[in-house]
């Protein structure tokens, strides 16, 4: 196998246009993806974070060959999604979020058998694969029940089993924990952890920061059809760019003096009594630390910003997760 990445997206644009009855040309409407570049290496669990309507599902569908790109090139497991969709389909599994996507009137086992057959599996190979997956996902006792009688969490496990039926190299998970209760979501994340340990490549979309932080090796932010900082170097630079230093027992004069240090962006009072100094770069953070130590402040802690903060920071100025 060559060292080319599992997913290679270059200049991907996707627009949705709609046609008015009898009109000659379609009207160009939404730009769902706008010149997106993204690389996901084999064995990586890659998170795609973004608010509603960011273009996450559209991206997943293009990777899954369900949608065609409007422009740009997309290569999945070495095959082009436009010129060789069949080769792509053989090597990926897809789990679209939500309640749908299974045959409710069939049992879990019948569903898996049907989907397995669509991947060309049959006979003993298919049977033992289904046994293995039902066992692994705790579906054995209920495999002969109709899927429409399952809870959301159970359905999600059937979904995942279906996505894995053909032993795909790449698994696309579109908001897999959407609608799951916290226990089921945690279980699900543990499963993702196992899949990663098997060396599978996973692209997971979510708007849950904690989830992305917990299960992903790398994260890309997507909003308005644009990917922000897919490059891990840039991202880690971002992380260290926003360093915070929390200190307890800071006197007013010290506080005033520290906040005038160049590179201190903001000072904030935390609920637990600490004062938080936001520094824009490492030298500034170091200067803050030195000033605090000089002022004989001893209760100091240094914490890295969570993904959520970076996310809000990146999105904040534009639109992002604003709650109206």
């Amino acid at each position: 196998m060559t060292e080319s990445p599992c997913i290679e997206i270059e200049g991907l644009t996707r627009t949705f246009s709609h046609r008015i009855f009898l009109a000659r040309r379609p009207i160009t409407g939404t730009i769902a993806l706008d010149h997106v570049n993204l690389i996901v290496e084999y064995g990586e669990v890659h998170g795609l974070l973004g608010p509603n309507g960011a273009g996450k599902t559209t991206l997943c569908k293009i990777l899954a060959t369900i949608l065609l790109p409007t422009a740009g090139t997309v290569t999945v497991c070495g095959s082009d999604v436009v010129t060789d969709p069949r080769a792509v389909r053989r090597r990926i599994g897809i789990v679209l979020g939500g309640d749908r996507g299974l045959y409710g009137r069939l049992t879990a086992r019948q569903n898996l058998r049907h989907w397995g057959a669509l991947y060309g599996l049959h006979g003993t190979a298919l049977r033992s694969r289904i046994d293995e997956l039902t066992e692994r996902f705790g579906l054995t006792t209920r495999q002969h029940d109709r899927v429409e009688t399952f809870s959301r969490g159970m359905k999600q496990r059937v979904h995942l089993a279906r996505g894995l039926i053909a032993d795909p190299e790449l698994l696309l998970l579109d908001e897999p924990t959407d609608g799951l209760d916290p226990v089921a979501a945690t279980e699900f994340r543990a499963l993702v952890g196992q899949l990663r340990a098997e060396g599978r490549t996973i692209l997971l979309t979510t708007h849950n920061m904690a989830e992305a932080e917990q299960v992903c090796d790398r994260v890309s932010f997507i909003d308005n059809g644009t990917i922000l900082d897919a490059d891990p170097a840039t991202l880690s630079a971002l992380v260290s760019r926003y360093e915070r230093i929390d200190a307890l027992g800071v006197t007013e004069p010290t506080r005033a003096r520290v906040s005038t240090i160049a590179g201190v962006e903001r000072v904030e009072d935390l609920p637990d009594g600490y004062v938080r100094f936001h520094a824009t770069d490492r030298p500034a953070a170091t200067a803050v630390l030195r000033a605090l130590v000089d002022a004989e402040v001893t209760r100091i802690r240094n914490s890295e910003p969570s993904l959520e903060e970076i996310y809000l920071h990146l999105m904040g100025g534009q639109r992002g997760m604003r709650v109206d």
Partner: peptide, 11 residues
């Protein structure tokens, strides 16, 4: 049933 998309994504 929401299966059409997934169907299209199979080989």
């Amino acid at each position: 049933t929401g299966t059409f998309e997934v169907l299209v994504a199979t080989p």
